[in-house]
Computed example of a mutant assay.
Amino acid sequence: MTTRDPTEQFGSTPAAAVIAACLQTQSSVPTRSGVSRLFGRSPLSDDSRPWYLGALGELQVAQQLAKLGAGWTVLHSVPIGERGSDIDHVVIGTAGVFTIDTKFHEDARIWVGSKRLLVSGQKTDHLRNSRFEAQRVTRALTAITGLPIDTRPVIVLVGIRSITIRERPADVAVLRDTELVRWLNRCPTTLDADVRERLTIALGQRDHWAAPSVQAPEVDIQAFAALRHEVDSARRARALWVMTIMAGSVAVAATLAVNAYSSLLRG
Rank of each mutant, 00 (worst) to 15 (best):
L59G: 05
D207A: 15
V214A: 05
V258F: 14
R136Y: 01
L180D: 05
V137D: 01
G248C: 15
D5L: 11
F39Q: 05
L44C: 00
N129Q: 13
G248K: 06
Q122I: 05
Q205R: 15
A234K: 08
R128D: 12
G96C: 08
G146I: 02
H76V: 03
Y52A: 01
L53G: 12
Q63I: 02
A55M: 01
D177S: 15
A173V: 07
I144K: 01
A237D: 12
S45N: 07
R49P: 03
G204I: 00
D192T: 06
I165T: 13
L265G: 06
V18Q: 03
V158Q: 08
H229M: 04
T138G: 00
L256K: 08
R206N: 11
M246Q: 08
A173S: 13
P79A: 04
G54Q: 03
V174P: 07
V61G: 13
I163T: 14
T178Q: 15
S28I: 12
A253N: 08
A21L: 03
L23S: 00
A226E: 14
V172F: 14
D171F: 08
G121I: 02
R32G: 10
P43H: 04
C187K: 15
M1I: 08
L56H: 07
P14V: 04
V112A: 14
R186I: 08
S162H: 14
N129I: 00
G248H: 11
S130Y: 09
